[in-house]
Design a protein around this nucleic acid. Structure first.
Length: 850
RNA sequence: GCCCGCGUGGUGGAAUGGUAGACACAGGGGACUUAAAAUCCCUAGGCUUCGGCCGUGCCGGUUCGAGUCCGGCCGCGGGUACCA
């Protein structure tokens, strides 16, 4: 090779790694293990730069840990069930299974050239019957342990297509295909009892020290622990069976400011009323058209309707409050009914103003405070305020103290009880779709819901299905549905709902430890490999996927599939940012935007026509905006190492990174430069250095080892890259002798090997490195080579830098202070006066306060 | 709406509360070349009366010292339980 040619070099080294089997994960009692996992991809058919970024980061960690002497597990698989496969079948014909497996083959072929250190022998897809069969076995174990149950739940219903819609398929309250207004409909569905674990899932967050604080916070808020009061209003004029309305409130301290009671449109009382009252029926129907997502419900205009029913205030039976049905009350939270205190809650106040309800603002207020206008007064939780009116507590109390006192008072009076409530709801796993894991139960007219026998697993998806009609083809399958009851043998019907794809991704990490075991997990393998030491993926999974996985690991422990140590399956979590790109746009004759691929644009103009394009600032790469760069093209043009180097170089891993063609070219130029430098050093075998040059280079080398290692350990790959740039500059300019240069260049190869593994092998081989750099031990920085004799300190006057002095590293503070005060700039600033204060931070800074 | 982040030169970014702008991109200047490409070197926050002054989204606070900590805004992004 006479120049750096990744097209030749990269396949060569990939073959060498394969032949040496260096990425096969082996249980090795003599070594510490390290399990690094990137969130596995959905097989859309094309890899994108986000994948490249995710897997490159994982690869850096995997290769680095391997060099540090760990036995590394770094697997890859496919999150292969889900709606896109069914949509493709509906739009283009064909079968979801073929579409999915073809996509997997395509994506695997696109990924392999990246040179990732993946143990491909462990690959699986969640749609493999071998995988989902084990998932069904676990479902049956969960069922036996009471971790799964059935109840009625609300779904989005498209009345024209006669099918259930995902929230994503509801656009402005209408079905995405039919355009018909969506309705809410109740179905009996399966649920995991994740809410039973709410307290533990919350408290265990404290143990996840290597998780980002923001993720733990988001999960804690999602679980939403609250302490409140549950009590009953007795009703006047309500239908039989509704003598009381149970209410949950986190604000019992404001009970004396109550002015209305409101119930959810899905509350049993609302359902009862709508049967006999057309106006209520109309209003409730309107509420139900909003869809089921919390976002849609909360953003909708707050509306209510007076039912005509009244309730009595628990402290004063002559005090009557109206009962409204309100669209912002969620049936899933608390009891589906609230009381409103407009003076001290903004939403209640808006509601009260809208419907002309009383605002009782004399109850809680800061002394001398203004009466409530259109802004509610919410007492601070932890700050003491004076309560002008209260029923039991010290009038000077914090909001939290007042709540606790109010609960105690109510319990004492027998009008309610303090309860701990969680916002977290049980996890509904039923999906009315074909392309998912079948739920292994049978419905029998005489035996009820009967679990399938384990020896009959997997319950396979039938292949002969059609997608010419909307809805779940399993429902209309001629034979698959009809089976004998596993208990009594009478004709019965199989459950046609399949599982949420989040179930598939809630335990795949455990399956990777023994992907072909005939049980869900194998004890020796989970004992050795679990937990995942480093998990890497997008922040968009901060709540659902990660919370479900934490629940699942606990459930798997209770059913004997995971050891206790694995109930928190991910020791460390890293959430990466997105890959973004500028958007190039022109407009058609009608003024509508037309988007163009980056490769069709040059210097702000369309290559084909020369027409100028409008450049829209960087945004997440998406097909619809055409601001996508295909990794395959980058690898073709520059090689995988360039793609890897660039994606690691510019931005901190947790932030978004903007892909630019200029940046990619610069990365390629740098790698070429490193290659040339290595080539030059390898060819030059004569000459000795002038004195001191060798040491200077070797000091720089040890500095680079220390800094690059620190960058990798701290997930700051961009700073590792910057240090390697600097080290390259130093090496290129160095006048050191050949031996020192060779040593430095070999260190360069090793330090680069996690990021640009192919180039590193090439350079390593050029310089006579032994074996593969992929298996060479990680270099260690010599602490003696890192210390400097002297240090340059900035001198500040009143916090602004005015001068600097260079002093011996060990100089004591008093000496430094003396020298600093003698400095010309300082003397000038002082003008003969004494400084008020001198702050000397050893080794850092001197600040003179005048 | 609610929860969680993020905001630093023309651009991506660096900076244990301690010299803001490391490293790189784009730019400018130069060397080499018949020329170009490639490569190498130099330069570079803004303003300036050349004394300095101003600068990390905006406003305020804590501190000897704030990009960093606190409070309040603005903008953008993620999630919001059936997208994965």
């Amino acid at each position: 090779m006479s120049r750096y040619d990744p097209a030749v070099s990269e396949p060569k080294w990939q073959q060498a790694w394969d032949e040496a089997g260096v990425f096969l994960a082996r249980r090795d009692a003599a070594k510490p293990k390290y399990y690094v996992l990137e969130m596995f991809p959905y097989p859309s058919g094309r890899i994108h730069m986000g994948h490249v970024r995710n897997y490159t980061m994982g690869d850096v960690i995997a290769r680095y840990k391997s060099s540090c002497g760990h036995s590394v597990l770094h697997p890859m698989g496919w999150d292969a069930f889900g709606m896109p496969a069914e949509n493709a079948a509906m739009e283009r014909g064909g079968h979801p299974k073929d579409w999915t497996y073809n996509n997997i083959a395509d994506m695997r072929a696109q990924m392999k050239p990246l040179g990732l250190s993946i143990d491909w022998s462990r690959e699986f897809a969640t749609c493999d019957p071998e995988y989902y069969g084990q998932q069904q076995a676990m479902f049956l174990d969960f069922l036996e342990k009471g971790l799964v149950y059935r109840k009625a739940a609300v779904v989005n219903w498209d009345p024209v297509d006669m099918t259930v819609l995902a929230n994503e398929q509801v656009i402005d309250g209408k079905g995405w295909r039919s355009g018909a207004p969506v309705e809410r409909r109740e179905l009996t569905q399966w649920f995991f009892r994740i809410s039973d674990f709410a307290g533990e899932l919350l408290s265990a967050l404290d143990t996840l020290e290597k998780w980002p604080e923001k993720v733990r916070l988001m999960q804690a808020n999602w679980i939403g622990k609250s302490r409140g009061l549950e009590f009953g209003f007795s009703t006047i004029g309500a239908p039989d069976g509704f003598e009381r309305i149970e209410v949950y409130t986190t604000r019992p301290d404001t009970l004396l400011g109550a002015s209305f009671c409101a119930i959810s449109p899905d509350h049993p009382l609302a359902k009862q009323l709508e049967r006999h009252d057309s106006k209520i029926a109309e209003f409730v129907a309107e509420c139900r058209r909003v869809g089921t997502s919390e976002e849609a419900l909360e953003k909708a205009e707050k509306k209510g309707m007076d039912t005509g029913i009244r309730v009595r205030h628990p402290f004063d039976t002559s005090w009557e409050l109206p009962v409204y049905i309100a669209n912002f009350i969620l049936m899933d939270y608390g009891t589906g009914a609230i009381f409103g205190c407009p003076a001290h809650d903004q939403r209640d106040l808006d509601f009260a103003r809208k419907y002309d309800l009383p605002v009782i603002d004399t109850f809680v207020a800061l002394e001398g405070g203004e009466p409530v206008g259109n802004e509610a007064f919410v007492p601070p939780k932890t700050e003491k305020v004076k309560w002008l009116k209260n029923f039991a507590w010290d009038p000077v109390a914090t909001g939290e103290e007042a709540v606790a006192a109010a609960i105690a008072f109510c319990e004492d009076k027998g009008v309610g009880r303090g309860v701990t409530n969680y916002r977290l709801r049980d996890w509904g796993l039923s999906r009315q779709r074909y392309w998912g894991c079948p739920i292994p139960v049978v419905h029998c007219a005489s035996c009820g819901v009967v679990p399938e026998r384990k020896e009959n697993l997997p319950v396979r998806l039938p292949d002969d299905v059609s997608f010419d009609k909307p809805g779940n083809p399993l429902d209309r399958h001629p034979t698959w549905r009809d089976v004998p009851c596993p208990d009594c043998g009478q004709p019965a019907k199989r459950e046609t709902d399949t599982m949420d794809t989040f179930v598939d991704s809630s335990w795949y990490y455990a399956r990777f430890t023994a992907p072909h075991a005939t049980t869900p997990t194998a004890p020796e393998d989970v004992d050795y490999w679990m937990n995942v030491d480093q998990y890497i993926g997008g922040i968009e999974h901060a709540i659902l996927h990660l919370l479900y996985s934490r629940f699942f690991a606990r459930a798997m422990h209770l059913t004997g599939h995971l050891p206790e140590k694995a109930v928190e399956p991910f020791n460390a979590l890293f959430t990466q940012g997105m890959v973004t790109h500028e958007i190039y746009m022109t407009r058609d004759a009608a003024g509508r935007p037309v988007y163009h691929l980056p490769e069709e644009v040059e210097e702000g103009k369309l290559k084909a026509t020369g027409a100028p394009v409008e450049i829209i600032p960087s945004a997440k790469m998406s097909k619809s905006k055409k601001n996508v760069v295909d990794p395959v093209n980058i690898i073709r043009d520059f090689g995988a190492d360039t793609a890897r180097w660039f994606i690691l170089s510019d931005s901190p891993p947790e932030r978004d990174v903007e892909w630019t063609s200029a940046g990619a070219e610069a990365a390629f130029r740098h790698l070429s430069r490193v290659w040339r430098l290595a080539d030059e050093i390898a060819r030059n075998d004569g000459g000795e250095a002038a004195g001191g040059e060798d040491e200077a280079l070797l000091r720089a080398m040890h500095r680079a080892i220390a800094d690059v290692t620190q960058g990798i350990e701290g997930f700051a790959f961009n700073t590792s890259v910057a240090k390697l740039y600097a080290f390259t500059n130093t090496l290129a300019k160095s006048k050191a002798g050949v031996a020192a240069k060779r040593e430095a260049m070999r260190a360069m190869a090793q330090l680069m090997s996690p990021m640009t593994p192919h180039l590193a092998e090439e350079v390593w081989a050029m310089l006579g490195g032994e074996g593969l750099v992929a298996v060479a031990p990680w270099p260690k920085a010599d602490p003696a080579m890192l210390v400097e004799d002297s240090v340059t300190l900035p001198i500040q006057i009143n916090g602004k830098k005015r001068s600097e002095i260079t002093v011996p590293k060990e100089m004591v503070a008093e000496e430094v202070e003396k020298l600093a005060l003698a400095d010309e700039a300082v003397a000038k600033a002082l003008a003969g006066a004494q400084p008020r204060k001198v702050i000397v931070v050893p080794g850092r800074i001197v600040n003179v306060v005048v």
